[in-house]
Amino acid sequence: MVKVLIKRHINEGKAKDVFGLLNKQRAIAMNQRGHIKGETLMSYQNPHSLLVISTWQSMENWLAWKENKERRANEAKLEQFLETPTEYDEFIFGTYPSKK
């Protein structure tokens, strides 16, 4: 299983635009192979800081979704409302697998 932490810092006054795009992204992700769940969290100290936690069955499933054309197009729209580029951290459960 894989958990992906996606960090975004949105521009002031753009929350409605960002959440609209994130909801669209999540709806599409739910139909992707290997998708388990997704959560969106807003920082208590800084409401402009968002964390999306996305859970996948495998790294291959996540990477296929990350490179999906529709996702990438939506991500490009999202980037215009962000203070900084999106950051991704990918975590696997268990021991570290050997790379092929």
Rank of each mutant, 00 (worst) to 15 (best):
W56F: 05
W56M: 04
W56I: 06
W56V: 04
Q57P: 15
S58N: 06
M59G: 12
M59D: 13
M59K: 12
E60L: 09
N61I: 00
W62I: 03
W62T: 07
A64C: 09
A64R: 15
A64L: 13
W65T: 00
W65Q: 00
W65D: 00
W65Y: 05
W65M: 00
W65L: 00
K66G: 04
K66Q: 14
K66L: 12
E67Q: 13
E67V: 00
E67S: 13
N68C: 05
K69D: 12
E70Y: 03
E70N: 01
E70L: 06
E70V: 07
R71K: 11
R71M: 09
R72S: 13
A73N: 15
N74P: 11
N74S: 10
N74H: 06
N74V: 09
N74M: 13
E75F: 11
A76V: 07
A76L: 09
A76D: 14
K77E: 14
K77D: 09
L78M: 07
E79R: 15
E79Y: 11
E79F: 11
E79A: 14
Q80D: 07
F81N: 01
F81A: 03
F81M: 02
L82P: 01
L82W: 04
L82Y: 02
L82E: 02
E83N: 07
E83V: 08
E83R: 08
T84P: 00
T84R: 12
T84G: 00
P85K: 05
P85I: 06
T86Q: 08
T86L: 10
T86I: 12
E87Q: 08
E87P: 00
Y88E: 10
Y88A: 15
Y88H: 12
D89M: 12
D89W: 06
D89K: 13
D89S: 11
E90N: 09
F91Y: 08
F91Q: 06
I92G: 07
I92N: 04
F93A: 13
F93W: 09
F93L: 14
F93R: 13
G94Q: 06
T95H: 06
T95W: 04
T95I: 13
T95R: 04
Y96I: 13
Y96D: 02
P97H: 02
P97I: 04
P97D: 04
P97A: 08
P97R: 01
P97F: 03
S98E: 14
S98A: 15
K99N: 11
K99W: 00
K99S: 14
K100N: 13
K100R: 11
